[in-house]
């Protein structure tokens, strides 16, 4: 394996017990410090890809390899915070399971809650927070373990449009600060993938295969509004949308026939 590669999916295939083929013969590598975004029509197996990497799903063919014992962390759809733990306890959960002492956990929670603008809510319970705040906690919980690869499964899909933009900016900002290294984000929003990712991988409808691997030539140093205005962004957006649109339409036809 290439020394710069952190994650290596090789000929990955996942077939569920009920016979549904979620992924088939998918190969993908993620380099160190690379942000890879996976887009595709719904039900294409994007989430399955993440779940295999996280160890929550077993590959039925091929598999995934990590370059070294790498720490993984995941941000779930709708946060999936533990409702019975306070914000501080949620943030430091991954540290606690790895044997950190309570004072260490508390210190990490304080550090991350300040970074995320959560310091006022450190002793609150998740249900007392808004959706955006909850997802900040989810992000803090994942980043607090200092992961080699951060997995994000449609993390901002449940948020309202304005909050979603703010969260995307926050994520990009955290990467710029070097607080988040390799990243694998699964989303159905093409603009999100282009704004966050160094690389955008487009999956076909089920079973998911890679139909495009785009490296958008956008300048990430600029603000989101400026990135959106770049011709390269527009062009990449249109290209990817045409690919996905084709897949979605094919899927719809198939469903009608069925």
């Amino acid at each position: 394996m290439d020394s710069g590669v952190v994650v290596d999916f090789a000929h990955l295939g996942v077939t569920y017990a009920n016979g549904v083929v979620a992924l088939s013969d998918l190969s993908l590598t993620i380099a160190a410090d690379q942000a890879v975004c996976v887009v595709g029509p719904s039900g294409c197996g994007k989430t399955t890809l993440l779940r295999v990497l996280a160890g929550l799903e077993r590959a039925t063919q091929g598999g995934v390899q990590l370059s070294r014992p790498a720490t993984l962390a995941m941000v779930f759809q709708q946060g999936l915070l533990f409702p019975w733990l306070s914000v501080a306890e949620n943030i430091s959960y991954g540290l606690m399971t790895r044997g950190a002492t309570p004072p260490q956990c508390r210190a990490a929670a304080r550090e991350w809650s300040e970074r995320m603008g959560l310091q006022r809510f450190i002793d609150a319970y998740p249900h007392q927070l808004s959706g955006g705040m909850q997802q900040r906690v989810g992000l803090a919980r994942a980043l607090a373990v200092n992961p080699d690869v951060l997995l994000l499964d449609e993390p901002f899909a449940a948020l309202d449009a304005q909050t979603r933009v703010l969260m995307q900016e926050l994520l990009v900002d955290l990467r710029r600060q070097g607080l988040c290294r390799s990243l694998l984000l699964v989303t159905h929003a093409i603009d999100e993938a282009l704004l966050v990712g160094d690389r955008v991988v487009v999956l076909s409808a089920r079973p998911g295969r890679i139909i495009a691997d785009v490296t958008p030539q956008v300048a990430h140093s600029q603000s989101f509004d400026e990135i959106r205005a770049q011709p390269a962004f527009m062009q990449a957006f249109t290209t990817i949308w045409q690919l996905i649109r084709h897949e979605v339409e094919a899927q719809l036809r198939e469903e009608v026939i069925l």
């Binding site: 929550l56 779930f76 399971t97 919980r141």
Partner: peptide, 15 residues
């Protein structure tokens, strides 16, 4: 999904 989240974050059975 709570069990899954706990496992992803490295919790063992007791935790």
């Amino acid at each position: 999904r709570y069990f899954e989240a706990a496992r992803v974050f490295g919790a063992n059975q007791r935790t």
